[in-house]
């Protein structure tokens, strides 16, 4: 369906992405990486907002840049920063975007009501967006991306600003949508995609690290993730020695989850690796750098 072939993106001397090769089919793909790893660059290339410095992206064998508006007709896109006109209501703004997407007014009105209802904004369709919360704006963004019933839906950090209830509803909506189309979600929040993505894509050092199912990615750490309790006074030395994934206080001691590749100690309890463990392990340098 959508093929990324030998794609690199450079900005002057800086390389954002290098030699990326990917293939997408119908289903949900989670693009998971820390901030600054090149997720938005890849997303923008898939949405034709920027062009690759090297390589090409094909949709059903045709170059998406050459397809031009034919490709954009198939595309639904939510950018990382969803811009809107403050004095517009969601209905007005979506009518405007529907016109730019080439939809007729009658069809657009029907679709707008249906979509705003779907994202639980049915009772504020005519309210000005300047009074909306961040979560409400984000829901308008999700609704507009679905206006043209896209075959390819690309969402860049779609859950930013959504509360836990809205996130759950959004995950349900995505699962439903991904049955008959390609959905690509970029995020740095593991829980957003762990339970719903058919495949996870991870980028590290500007290159593709993984493109596989959650199970297969997690199996890369099989037998290396453990939990144990550690005394407070020994924690400093423990942190230095092992890659810590999480730590929790309980009954005056610390329960730690960590990675060890080698012979384990007897008192350590082996646990099943999760996607978050792989994320924290693979990006440990970048995450430590951010802290």
């Amino acid at each position: 369906m959508l093929v990324v072939k030998n794609v690199s993106k450079r900005y002057g001397d800086f390389t954002a992405l290098q030699q990326i090769n990917l293939e997408f089919n119908t289903g949900l793909y989670g693009l998971l990486a820390p901030n600054g790893a090149g997720k938005t660059t890849l997303i923008k290339m898939l949405a034709t907002l920027i062009t690759p410095s090297e390589g090409e992206i094909y949709y059903n064998g045709k170059n998406i840049i050459a397809m031009d508006e034919q490709y954009r007709e198939l595309l639904g896109f939510l950018p990382q920063q969803f811009g809107y006109y403050k004095n517009y209501s969601p209905k007005q703004y979506m009518l405007y975007l529907a016109a730019l997407k080439g939809l007729g007014k009658k069809e657009a009105l029907r679709k707008i009501d249906e979509l705003l209802e779907k994202v639980a904004l049915g009772d504020v369709v005519n309210k000005k967006m300047k009074k909306f919360s961040g979560g409400m704006i984000q829901r308008v963004g999700i609704a507009q991306a679905l206006l043209n019933d896209p075959k390819i839906l690309i969402l860049d950090e779609p859950t930013a600003g959504l509360d836990p209830k809205e996130r759950a509803r959004f995950r349900h909506l995505l699962t439903e949508l991904a049955r008959d189309r390609l959905v690509i979600i970029s995020t740095h929040i593991v829980s957003d995609i762990e339970s719903i993505a058919n495949e996870i894509i991870m980028i590290k050092n500007k290159q593709l690290l993984y493109k596989d199912s959650v199970e297969n990615i997690c199996s890369t750490l099989k037998g290396n993730v453990f939990e144990t309790t550690v005394n407070f006074e020994l924690m400093k030395a423990f942190r230095k020695k092992y890659v810590l994934l999480s730590e929790k206080q309980e009954y005056g001691k610390m329960i730690v989850r960590f990675i060890h590749k080698g012979v384990p100690e007897v008192e350590w309890k082996p646990v099943v690796p999760e996607l978050e463990d792989v994320f924290l392990y693979e990006y440990r340098d970048e995450i430590e750098g951010e802290v």
Binding site: K44, A47, T48, L49, E69, R72, E73, L75, F77, L78, P79, Q81, F82, G83, Y84, Y85, L97, L100, K101, G102, G141, Q144, N148
Partner: peptide, 17 residues
């Protein structure tokens, strides 16, 4: 405008308008 990215992904994009 902040709407640039959204409008650029539409069939009739910013430069066409």
């Amino acid at each position: 405008n902040a709407t640039y990215d959204v409008e650029m992904a539409c069939k009739y994009n910013v430069y066409q308008v």
